[in-house]
Design a protein around this nucleic acid. Structure first.
Length: 353
DNA sequence: CATGGTAA
DNA sequence: TTACCATGG
């Protein structure tokens, strides 16, 4: 689930966007796992069943990825997806915890189906959704034919995204989670979508959700802390590497403690109670020096209509007419915004002289 | 989540 | 236009 910095973000550190035009021409690194997982959880029928092809393979994530990516390109955004590699040792326990939660939800799903409780069934189906490696491979395959670059992270995708933004290879990272800020991403985009309504869980109401950009420098400046101190606050609240956080410490207390004592190590031990031992130094060090790679090439190439039809229509039973319509939109947007604009400045000079 | 049709 | 709703695979 990631670190929850929501209640810590001052309004001044955040820009809410009425539309995505602000991001026109900008490279945005999207956390692939985060995006796919959300599509997988959300794109379902009323009973909770995901979209599937005739072989019974889930396609919800492909549908979401396909249409959302086209929308981004139509806004003139240059998306690049990053995918998780091997999880760090520090995360293993959290992954096991999530697995247990999924299995629990799967049981409750069966019960809800038996009782005919559709609403509960849908909820538990969402909670039990599992993104498999096959699903990720199909997503990469789709991006390839769409001409959209993706990067395989050695470990955490959020860390890789932060690295790419820090180097200036991209403008912002995009995820619903705040982790990339702890990994040092200078800019985080949340709610990166154009269709701005989201259903409130357990309620029959909808809220407007607008894209927002959080700037790391403004965040730390407004809070009067350093990035390392922000990491400390994250650890106090709970991260994927210590999901429970520290007992009785919420955003307010965390900020006060760090402002008062300077670092998590200097906080008197009496304040810091946990059920299990937490290696604070190790976690902090991971956020500061995660495994990342500079071996990537960001290129947006002409969408391959035949390839896209092959993946979506032939292999996964998407409607051919719908897919072709969407590819048409993609090609048009590609020509308008992306074509011929991926050359570096020096190459551009060579080309024109 | 996103599209596409229909109704206002 | 905009809002709603059923459907997508």
């Amino acid at each position: 689930m990631g670190v929850n910095l929501k209640d810590l973000i001052p309004p001044e550190a955040k820009v809410v966007l009425d539309d995505l035009r602000v991001l026109r021409g900008k490279i945005v690194v999207v956390d692939g796992y985060n995006a796919l997982y959300q599509f997988l959880a959300a794109i379902r029928g009323p009973d909770g069943s995901p979209l599937m092809d005739s072989s019974g393979r889930i396609t919800s994530h492909l549908s979401g990825l396909f249409y959302r990516t086209i929308n981004l390109v139509e806004e003139g955004i240059k998306p690049v997806y990053v995918f998780d590699g091997n999880p760090p040792e520090l995360k293993i326990k959290e992954l096991e915890r999530r697995k247990a939660l999924r299995e629990e939800a799967a049981k409750k799903y069966e019960e809800a189906v038996k009782e005919g409780d559709l609403e509960a069934a849908r909820r538990y189906a969402m909670m039990s959704s599992k993104l498999t490696s096959d699903m990720v491979e199909e997503a990469k395959r789709l991006l390839k034919v769409m001409g959209i670059p993706w990067v395989q992270a050695p470990a955490e995708g959020e860390a890789q995204a932060a690295f790419m933004v820090r180097r200036g290879d991209a403008y912002a990272s995009a995820s619903q989670d705040y982790d990339s800020l702890l990994f040092g991403s200078p800019r985080l985009v949340r709610n990166l979508t154009i269709s701005g309504k989201r259903k409130l869980p357990r309620k029959d109401a909808y809220v407007e959700v607008k894209p927002e950009v959080i700037e790391l420098s403004k965040l730390t400046e407004k809070l009067g802390i350093t990035r390392e101190q922000l990491i400390d606050i994250g650890i106090l609240l709970g991260t994927d590497y210590n999901p429970e956080g520290f007992e009785g410490i919420g955003p307010k207390t965390a900020l006060t403690l760090i402002r008062t004592y300077g670092s998590i190590e200097k906080i008197p031990k009496g304040y810091l109670r946990t059920r299990e031992e937490v290696d604070v130094v190790k976690i902090k060090n991971y956020f500061l020096h995660p495994p990342v790679t500079a071996e990537y090439k960001l290129e947006w190439i002409e969408p391959d209509q035949k390839g896209i039809v092959e993946v979506l229509v032939k292999d996964h039973d998407f409607n051919e007419e719908r897919v072709k319509n969407a590819v048409e939109r993609l090609s048009k947007a590609y020509k308008e915004f992306l074509k011929g604009r991926q050359l570096g400045l020096d190459q551009w000079f060579k080309k024109s002289s």
